[in-house]
Design a protein around this nucleic acid. Structure first.
Lengths: 206, 206
DNA sequence: CACCCATCCTACCGCTCGGTACAAAAGCTG
DNA sequence: CAGCTTTTGTACCGAGCGGTAGGATGGGTG
């Protein structure tokens, strides 16, 4: 749409990135359906017609806000998965995730989950978009661990696909915990436990 | 309120337990805010005034439905934690959880999470009730594992509190996955991975 | 059969929702 | 400074929300 400043007509009184970030916070805190237009415009500091002129609709605003959020998350994940070993990758992934879930500069938890796990039928697309975002992250994790398996970098008997799902599920569970008030330290202690999985040789089950 | 049949006045045309179960399904599928009264009454097979005469309000209906759901979940969890060893308890907990999350006779996932992780400010109580339910389950797990630690039934160096949080978080993550369509087998494979944590002696970290 | 009374059903309430019409305002261009 | 273009602000729209009033209904009880 707007490529830089149009240089004609009345100039915009707000920065698109800024108001997107504020919108994301409201969606994050209250979910898609729990975020009313009044709450959104209030937090964004703009009024309805500006919102609609810029973003089109509540749903499109959400898509934009979520895309922005997801890009950043993906960048963090990518950095984690660039670690040289599977163990280091998983550790970096889970540690940075736990840090992010409890960072003080935004709502606790994760927009991909808080945004709307369950929605009314007419907003079903929202849950789908969020699920697709989470699936993309899991796919990256799976690729990294599949490579690790090829390189002999995983303990014997560990299926990389299952391990990816395990790590992703744990991180999602941490998001749920964070949203309910769990602290960074509590999540990191859970990560400590999880990492035993990757570090060890196969079990002699009792 | 109604203690059995009042034996006076027009008899009720519906069974309270039955309509509660149907209401729970709607909340489960669409979340508290996504479940409209029309959807609820439609699924319950009763009309609005009957709903309000019986349950008082949408919120009270939800509380009743969730309490019913949570009791049953707690019973399953209690059975799992009655296993003789920590390993068997955790395994039973995670396996039965994964089974329940993907059972075909109700929506996928878990009402405690689908119901409303994030809500509009006026429905904040809903998220709190759900979080309290999950916390109760985690507390039961924590007690069981603390006992196990006292009994020397945990691998050395494992903090029972952190292990409880880990197990609970994983199960919540599985709920998120199940809601997005993960199969029972996929979740069980993730459980396979997780169980290595409980089975093994402490890591020599690479 | 007349009475009583809780439940059922239709139709409606006020309110907030997401979304928009329209005119005043504000910056460039000539 | 007139004209053009885009954004801003106010005030509003129909629809659906959660919730309710009041009469019709249908079972026991005398």
């Amino acid at each position: 749409m707007s490529t830089g400043t149009p240089a004609i007509g009345r100039p915009r009184a707000f920065d698109e990135e800024t108001v997107l970030a504020r919108a994301a916070e409201v969606f994050w805190r209250h979910g898609y359906e729990g975020a009313s237009l009044s709450a959104l415009t209030g937090a964004m500091g703009i009024n309805r017609p500006s919102l609609y002129a810029t973003f089109g609709s509540k749903e499109e605003l959400f898509q934009r806000a979520f895309a922005r959020y997801h890009e950043r998350q993906a960048a963090v994940a990518r950095a984690a998965l660039d670690q040289p070993t599977a163990y280091a990758s998983v550790e970096a992934f889970l540690r940075s995730s736990a840090d992010g879930l409890t960072a003080g500069d935004h709502p606790a938890g994760c927009l991909s989950i808080q945004g709307g796990l369950a929605c009314s039928p007419e907003n079903a697309r929202i849950s789908q978009v969020l699920a697709a975002g989470r699936a993309a992250t899991e796919a990256a994790l799976r690729e990294r661990l599949t490579r690790a398996a090829r390189e002999g970098d995983l303990p014997a008997g560990v299926d990389p696909q299952a391990l990816a799902r395990f790590v992703m599920a744990l991180s999602e569970g941490h998001a749920v915990h964070a949203a309910a008030g769990a602290s960074r330290e509590e999540l990191q202690a859970s990560v400590d436990i999880a990492l035993r999985v990757v570090a060890l040789t196969p079990p002699g089950r009792p």
